[in-house]
Design a protein around this nucleic acid. Sequence first.
DNA 1: GTGATGACACAAT
DNA 2: AATTGTGCCATCA
Length: 111
Amino acid sequence: MYGTFSDRVYWLVAQIPPGYVASYGQIATYAGSPGAARAVGNLMRTSHINSPTPIPWQRVINAQGKIPSKGDVARAELQRYLLEKEGIHFSPSGTVSFTEFGWTPDWIPWE
DNA sequence: GTGATGACACAAT
DNA sequence: AATTGTGCCATCA
């Protein structure tokens, strides 16, 4: 069920409730591969294509609490819109407070 | 199997 | 505070 890294990542992201966010590093760590933040990024980028089920990819942002906009401004704007719609507040500089909106899983199936 | 790539993280400058 | 360099891990050609 959770055989691969991507399976675990998808599952974890799917657990994030509306109004909360998590960082790539966090997800990677919970998925069992600390430091695999980049891999998580790749998965989020292609999630809407590869994920068997829809996942709230917009709730995963970088460790700075910001939304990276590497050559894809449209996605970044959409993401911010979706998050604000869920009640997440962005500071004037465009960052999200993990202290307020940070999420941590209660338990993990494979642990 | 090898090398390149990427929504990143972290320490050093 | 802003940049730059280095490390890390999972894909994919």
